[in-house]
Write a protein that binds this DNA or RNA. Structure first.
Lengths: 151, 151
DNA sequence: ATAATTGCAAAGTCTTTGCAGTTTG
DNA sequence: CAAACTGCAAAGACTTTGCAATTAT
């Protein structure tokens, strides 16, 4: 299976943005690169700011937020809330979900396929189309369950 | 677990708290009542503040937050984040989940049973115990799906 | 009595916004 | 060049915290 290199994917995305009329700036290039490099891992806006700063320290937090919003509107990026306020961002084509441990904060990633049956049942029974890309379920991870057997 | 008949739910909960060593105050009584009255509906901290104020206007927001924290520690209350920051609170024995429409904000409630199979699969396959009580899935509700067929 | 609880005000976190200057296409 | 984008600073939503006064047990 062929896996596109980070640079390739970045330019594909930038290309797509440009064709939408959005302008490509150094900040945006850096942010998209940061998202591509994150590659399926959950990153907060803060993480992204930090990463972007490694190449362009001048980029302001607000620019990151605004660009994320633009990317989201363009359908390139999505975000979920992993409890307690802060959101995590990811490219739209990373199809997996999050199990967030309420005790230690660990994040377990689960492929889409596992969730597909529930998705179908909700669609049929409730007319509700679960976000195809990404969501988070709270719970207790294996390690914590082992440490604290009963609640 | 025993379900109260003649005795109202509020006093049962307050009783339980008192036996935990927590002190019962007017503010706490009002808050528990507000939670009981919400009865399975999603309420934000703000909703609760407002409700509590209807009987005791003097109760401060911070008291509500602190009491909610205490109630959560006592296992009486839990909260979930329905996207974008604000959390919703509910009594721990209300077993249902939320489907939150990303377009109109509607919240569809789904009984635990629907989710049970996924829960089991995640437990077996990932050692992850999904929160037994409450979580939220983002998506698009029936009405919005009808309005905006394709994305 | 005495430790828990409260109100208040202030701070903290995460995110958004108005504006004037800069850059892209 | 015009429209889009940016940094900055300030505000906004939601929640937490330090403290002295109050209150339940």
């Amino acid at each position: 299976m062929w896996k596109p290199r980070g640079v390739d994917r970045t330019s594909v995305i930038l290309q797509q943005l440009r064709s939408d009329g959005t302008r490509i700036t150094a900040a945006r290039r850096a942010l998209v690169t940061a998202l591509v490099d994150a590659d399926g891992h959950h990153v907060t806006a803060d993480d992204l700011v930090e990463t972007v700063h490694r190449s362009i320290p001048a980029v302001h937090r607000s620019t990151v937020y605004r660009t994320l919003e633009a990317l989201e509107q363009a359908g390139v990026v999505e975000h979920v809330h992993l409890g307690h306020g802060r959101a995590v961002y990811h490219l739209s084509d990373d199809r997996h979900h999050h199990l967030v441990c309420e005790r230690c904060g660990a994040v377990v990633e689960v492929p889409e396929a596992v969730v597909a049956p529930l998705r179908e049942q909700l669609a049929v029974g409730y007319g509700f189309v679960v976000n195809g890309r990404h969501f988070a379920l709270p719970g207790v991870c294996r390690a914590c369950a082992a440490l604290i057997p009963a609640d």
